[in-house]
């Protein structure tokens, strides 16, 4: 529960649009309750800015309960801030101290161009999914759901990969801006399930090719992605992606 309020100094990246040059601006905020979420603190700041006649800070957010994957702030050098396994919207001000200076930056990757201020364009992720992150089954073609037996362990493991919210924290955290954790989560989920196995080779080949086209960096196994992932997606999925990819390349008929 709340105990008093705090005053903070925010250093926020401001950038008019994708082509202009950005810079940090410093904003003092006060009267911040420890029960506020980080984004609510931004709401307060934005209200103040508007009242002062300054344009508010643009940032992406939607569900504010850690599942839509839209919020994307790089706070004090970490995507989604200082706590593990949560998104920016789930970060509460009780994680900070009165008098703190907080630096807030957008995700930085050439595959995620800045739209404005803290909002970036993550459509590269959609294009990767469009290149193969699905099971090719038209509506109405399915057989009874219980005809496919799936070991609980496989279903659980597939779920742990499918829990990815596509926020891009993995890319933001990686020093190479690599999208391997994101891609591996989808490849892994579908590779673990019998429904996905049918087209697993084509899927992994196409998704990796698209990932490379988008200009993400390569994985150097630093593990920062998994450590910063709000859903705790494991590096095991990247290993599975590697296996799937190399075995597909060796044995598929796609020359």
């Amino acid at each position: 529960m709340s105990e008093g309020t705090m005053s903070l100094t925010l250093k926020v990246w401001r950038q008019k649009n994708s082509t202009s040059k950005g810079e940090f601006k410093t904003y003092p905020v006060s009267g911040i309750s420890s029960d506020m979420s980080f984004l609510e603190m931004f709401d307060v700041l934005n209200e103040e800015l508007i009242t002062k006649g300054e344009e508010s800070i643009a940032f992406d957010h939607d569900c504010r309960e850690g599942i839509c994957g839209m919020c994307s702030m790089y706070i004090n050098g970490r995507p989604h801030g200082p706590k593990n396994a949560i998104t920016t919207c789930q970060l509460h001000m009780r994680s900070f101290k009165d008098g703190d200076t907080i630096t807030v930056e957008p995700w930085r990757a050439s595959a995620f161009p800045i739209v404005k201020d803290l909002a970036v364009n993550r459509s590269a992720f959609d294009r990767i999914i469009a290149s193969g992150g699905y099971v090719s089954v038209n509506t109405g073609n399915a057989k009874d759901a219980n005809d496919i037996l799936i070991p609980k362990e496989d279903a659980d493991e597939a779920f742990s990969a499918a829990a990815c919210i596509g926020c891009g924290a993995c890319v933001a955290a990686c020093k190479n801006a690599s999208a391997m954790l994101f891609v591996s989560a989808k490849v892994s989920q579908l590779a673990l399930l019998p429904q996905g196995k049918v087209e697993s080779q084509k899927r992994v080949e196409n998704m990796v090719a698209q990932m490379d086209v988008e200009g993400f960096g390569a994985c150097t196994n630093t593990g920062a992605c998994s450590a910063e992932c709000p859903k705790g997606i494991s590096l095991e999925h990247i290993a599975r992606l590697n296996r799937e990819y190399f075995s597909a390349k060796l044995t598929s008929n796609n020359v």
Binding site: Y134, D144, A145, L149, P151, K152, A155, A162
Partner: peptide, 22 residues
Amino acid sequence: TYIIDQCVAQGVPFAREYGGLL
């Protein structure tokens, strides 16, 4: 009922029992 069939076919990882059933 078709919805569940369709979603399972798409690879939606619903919770399962140890026997592999939904």
